[in-house]
């Protein structure tokens, strides 16, 4: 049986939808795309989805109505709202209706990827609760990292960085992407680059001390890449 996770994308901006599909397929997801609420309702009725990305401003209404449909069909479906509307009220509305996460446009694919994976891990009972990369095991729920059966002593920032990398293996993550991730959406610029550098340096040091392969590689002048192949 096909082990790929199925994602529903409801987005009326076709180009954005295409890039998203392309990206998710690269990450071993299968995707179904619709751009209206009506067609989305049909898809929800006929298919099982592991996660759904919902845009709010759709041509035939507000994407919020789909949350209930998805959750009624299957509680395990992770619902992520992807919207340009960055208002607190909208977020609260969406979360109250049962959405699991809220992403503001524009977003980075790395961020989307990390959030989808985390959601699927969290909501699906049968899903493995750990990520294993050769000698490296990551336990997201316990915030624990094990290398060669030894527990690594990481700070919470270092842990979330490693998890972020592990969710986005073999992808170039630019400093902008990592900076945004580290500063968790704080609006101004100015000091995240150095901070990212320090955290990654410490993380790499701690992992290699335990004999871990150097997965995190520096991409000169651009950022970093977690290389497993």
């Amino acid at each position: 049986m096909d082990n790929k996770k199925h994602i529903l994308i409801v987005e009326d901006e076709v180009e954005l939808a295409l890039s998203t599909i392309h990206f998710l397929q690269d990450n071993h997801f299968t995707c179904t795309h619709t751009s209206t609420i009506q067609s989305a309702l049909k898809e929800i009725k006929n298919n099982h989805f592991h996660a759904a990305l919902l845009d709010l401003g759709l041509p035939d209404g507000d994407g919020l109505v789909l949350i209930k449909e998805l959750k009624n069909k299957n509680q395990e479906t992770g619902v992520i709202i992807v919207s340009a509307k960055d208002t607190l009220n909208k977020k609260i509305d969406a979360l109250e209706l049962g959405a699991d996460d809220y992403l503001t446009k524009p977003f980075f694919f790395a961020e989307l990827n990390a959030r989808i994976k985390s959601l699927i891990r969290r909501l699906n009972v049968e899903e493995s609760k750990k990520i294993v990369i050769n000698e490296l095991s990551i336990y997201p729920e316990e915030m624990k990292v094990v290398v060669h059966d030894k527990v690594a002593d990481l700070t919470s920032k270092e842990f979330s960085l490693l998890l972020y990398f592990a969710s986005n293996q073999n992808r170039v993550l630019s400093k902008t992407i990592l900076g945004e991730f580290m500063s968790s959406g704080y609006d101004d610029y100015g000091f995240s680059d150095d901070l990212v550098y320090t955290h990654i340096k410490n993380l790499k040091k701690k992992l290699s001390k335990l004999g871990c392969t150097e997965y995190i590689k520096n991409v000169y002048g651009i950022g970093y890449k977690f290389i497993t192949n």
Binding site: E13, S19, H22, F23, A84, K85, P106, A110, V172, I177
Partner: peptide, 24 residues
């Protein structure tokens, strides 16, 4: 105000996604 946000953020999301895609 809200529309401006919506109208500008979506094209920016398209640009950002395409750049990300190319970068890989």
């Amino acid at each position: 105000t809200e529309n401006v946000s919506h109208e500008l953020q979506t094209p920016l999301a398209v640009i950002s996604s395409k750049v990300d895609q190319m970068m890989q």
